[in-house]
Design a binder for these strands. Structure first.
Length: 754
RNA sequence: GGGCGGUUAGCUCAGUUGGCUAGAGCAUCUCGCUUACAUCGAGAAGGCCGUAGGUUCGAGUCCUACACCGCCCACCA
């Protein structure tokens, strides 16, 4: 057979992927049919972390997919029933705000001007376009995912899972509706969770002032306008300066508004900071809310959802915050109440997706209670029995602490525990339109006797829309207009993709999943939520191992970003250098948890490696004996090896062992480097070069021994390399002489044992 | 403020349970188009493994302190 001089990935990749798919090699059922695995074989299962349908894949996705595919292909070759489920994430707020900004740019409209129905149509068509792109890209990366099981976090099956989960968690007493202070994003017009808030450093002013001239204690603040909502002043109970005032109540006139201020003593107050006294604004500050709760101070909301002052009959009513601030400072100056103005740097809370400045507001929202003990309904967990009581926090903690789930690398376990310790109730409701609707229904009539479900709050939780109102028996109920945090649905991902809430075979066969591979930046967002959801709902862990990869950076260690202009598009790169080259360069030097730097040079080097493999094969094929009997003997591995070749085979055995050990311990980066080293500098540089002597000038036994050695080395190494460089190895596999028993595809060959 | 991590060749990084005469890729230099590959080969140069102590027969690897860099969390009125 004549083999071209250089490896051409462009002619290879799409063709091979299509063949794999056509032969259904990505399905565990096929492994069983072909006798590679049996029904009793151990399984290896993963979910693809569903990419957001907000655009296209980036290098981070490429890295994740590569690692996952390596794990999947490795286990498939080792004879595991291997299932890897693909899918996409509707990503609620991220997608909605993306479409909103497009709408604003293209049509100059906001979502309200367009209307809910039309807007959602737009979002859905955007999502579906984005989905198609993503799916194409996942294929291009060579991912051996089972496309027939593809899922979407917002499709019908997942919607059923979400509603069921919501209802069950509510029945368990873990979901509640309550008035609480939340992170309000005035730009996105929605609440966001604590994890979706980022802090930005900014210059600000710290004002020290008195409410009015009769008030004895000076207060410091960076936000004078919020002081309109003050209902108390808190001081440290040990602070001698203010001790005498604790317990007293003052009527003050602050900037023309009358306030009633109670002085309370609270240990949390640092006497050293500012004036040692805090103006307590319970409605617009998390810590103040807590102080107010401790001391029974009243709550007064003075800022509305638009980010305006909202006080009836006040001159400030309807004014923007910044405007109100100026005017108040002006008034304080006039009355000579402003003691000090100093510049300070402070942290401004920003909404991750919209960059809107977070305004803490008290709002009626849905929460998941992480501190409430509940009866654990069923358990396959070793640390708790069915019927025992536990909190969600404890469940999340013990799942990892007791070793049911291992994080790779281990150092993230500390970060994880630390996060759990600081965890507050999870606000799961969002006021956006795109997402799963909360399955809560309200009676339209008022004053009726309410007797079912959650009567106190007058809502009824149901998976199906109720036909008859259980409260009044007449009205058509109104569904809650809120949607769910996107992480609520992705928290169910390992089992919602396997048919839950049906008691499916899939769930029995492939859950808990074996590995979850994802970026360490979503450890809290996603990994922790999956543990929460899975343990509480099905009494099982979602996965045994969590493999966390780092961030892909440019060659100078910078994050890839549009503003720097250093973004590398994985698809472009794989067009130029080949997917195999891209995969190798992403994996080499990428220890779990560490950031990876990638450069064009690095990728080029791996393209060269693919070519090296190609040419080494060309050589081996070209020297194979023409006589059929001899060739068959080599293919069967029956040729007698001389001492020199025996030694090479011993080295190869060691190499296989080492690579396998690395793979089993998630040291994929080391396995990749070893493979590169061994192939190039042992096999090509030494073994092939040495063999030429025997092949061209040696005695018959020497020639045959050398050829046998080459053949064994090449075929075994190709198998070892296949998970890493699936395309080039598959293409080559079809070109080398093989036995009848060997598979048509290297993808389903056995992983070498020795 | 609390926590976690890093510091090894010009650059990017390996170094798995302490045995290393410390490796690789890229870049540099010299020579070579020899019948697998110039997307290559042969060779060279390049490192008090952040600093200071300690444990040990032996430390890049373990311990302590310090310096610098990075990340995460909290958020102080």
């Amino acid at each position: 057979m004549k083999i071209p001089k250089n490896y051409n990935h462009k002619e290879t990749e799409d063709k091979i992927y299509a063949k794999w798919e056509k032969e259904r090699l990505f399905k565990p059922e096929t492994s069983i049919e072909k006798g590679k695995a049996s029904h009793d074989s151990p399984y290896f299962s993963m979910v693809l972390p569903p990419p957001n349908v907000t655009g296209i894949l980036h290098m981070g996705h490429a890295l994740g997919i590569t690692i996952e595919d390596i794990l999947a292909r490795f286990h498939r070759m080792k004879g595991y029933k291997t299932l890897w489920i693909p899918g996409t994430d509707h990503a609620a707020i991220a997608t909605q705000s993306k479409v909103e900004s497009i709408l604003q740019k293209e049509e100059g409209k906001n979502r309200h001007q367009l209307g809910k129905k039309k807007f959602l149509e737009k979002v859905n068509s955007f999502a579906s376009e984005s989905h198609d792109t993503i799916v194409k890209q996942v294929r291009k990366m060579g991912a051996s995912v089972d496309w027939e099981r593809e899922a979407y976090t917002l499709d019908e099956k997942r919607n059923r899972a979400v509603k069921t989960a919501f209802k069950r968690l509510h029945d368990m007493g873990l979901i509640y509706k309550g008035m609480r202070i939340v992170n309000w994003d005035p730009r996105g017009q929605t609440t966001v969770s604590d994890d979706e808030v980022n802090y930005e450093e900014a210059k600000g002013k710290l004002y020290t002032f008195y409410y009015d001239k009769d008030f004895p204690i000076p207060i410091a603040t960076t936000r004078p306008e919020t002081k309109l909502g003050d209902t108390a002043v808190a001081v440290n109970p040990g602070d001698k300066r203010y001790k005498e005032y604790i317990g007293k109540e003052y009527k003050v006139n602050f900037a023309g508004e009358s306030l009633s201020i109670k002085i309370v003593g609270d240990e949390e107050i640092d006497p050293e900071f500012g004036t040692g006294a805090v103006g307590v604004t319970p409605a617009h500050s998390f810590t103040d809310w807590e102080i107010a709760e401790r001391h029974g101070v009243s709550i007064k909301q003075i800022i509305n959802e638009k980010g305006e002052i909202s006080i009836q009959d006040s001159e400030f009513n309807g004014k923007e915050i910044s405007k109100a601030r100026e005017e108040i400072v002006e008034k304080l100056k006039e009355k000579d109440l402003l003691v000090k103005e100093e510049f300070i740097t402070q942290n401004i809370a920003k909404a991750e997706r919209t960059d809107g400045t977070i305004e803490p507001l008290p709002k009626m929202q849905w929460f998941i209670n992480v501190n409430k003990k509940f009866v654990f309904p069923h358990s396959s967990l070793p640390f708790i029995k069915k019927g025992e009581k536990i909190t969600l926090k404890k469940l999340m903690e013990l799942s990892v602490k007791e070793g049911c789930i291992s994080l790779v690398p281990k150092k993230f376990e500390k970060t994880y525990f630390h996060w759990i310790n600081n965890l507050r109730d999870w606000c799961i409701s969002r006021q956006i339109w795109f997402g799963h609707h909360i399955p809560a229904y309200y009676c339209k009539k008022e004053g009726r006797k309410i007797h079912q479900n959650d009567a106190k709050n007058n809502f009824y939780i149901s998976i199906e829309a109720p036909e008859k109102c259980p409260f009044c028996g007449e009205c058509e109920m109104v569904q809650d207009s809120d949607t769910l945090d996107t992480w609520f649905s992705s928290g169910l991902w390992t089992f919602s993709t396997l048919g839950w809430p049906e008691e499916s075979k899939e769930l029995m066969n492939y859950h808990p999943t074996t590995v979850l591979e994802t970026g360490h930046d979503i450890l809290f967002f996603w990994v922790a939520r999956m543990i929460l959801m899975t343990t509480s709902l099905i009494g099982e862990i979602p996965f045994r191992y969590v493999y966390l990869h780092g961030i892909v950076r440019d060659e100078r260690g910078r994050k890839m970003s549009k503003s720097i202009g250093n973004i590398m598009d994985p698809i472009e790169v794989s067009d130029i250098y080949g997917t195999d080259a891209l995969r190798m360069s992403l994996v080499i030097g990428s220890a779990p948890g560490n950031d990876v730097k990638i450069s064009e040079d690095k990728i080029k080097a791996q393209k060269h490696f693919a070519n090296k493999i190609w040419n080494a094969t060309r050589f081996v094929v070209s020297v194979m004996p023409e006589e059929k009997k001899e060739l068959d003997k080599i293919i069967a591995g029956e040729t007698i090896l001389l001492d020199n070749e025996k030694k090479h085979q011993e080295d190869l055995k060691k190499h296989i062992k080492e690579v396998t050990r690395h793979m089993e311990n998630f040291r994929i980066y080391l396995a990749a480097e070893k493979l590169y080293q061994y192939f190039w500098h042992n096999f090509a540089d030494i073994i092939i070069e040495e063999s030429k002597e025997s092949i061209y000038k040696g005695r018959e036994e020497e020639r045959m021994s050398a050829l046998q050695n080459l053949y064994l080395h090449l075929t075994k190494q190709l198998k070892l390399l296949h998970p890493f460089m699936p395309y080039v190895t598959e293409e080559i596999w079809s070109m080398i002489p093989r036995s009848k028993e060997s598979e048509n595809y290297i993808m389903i060959e056995d992983w070498p044992k020795n």
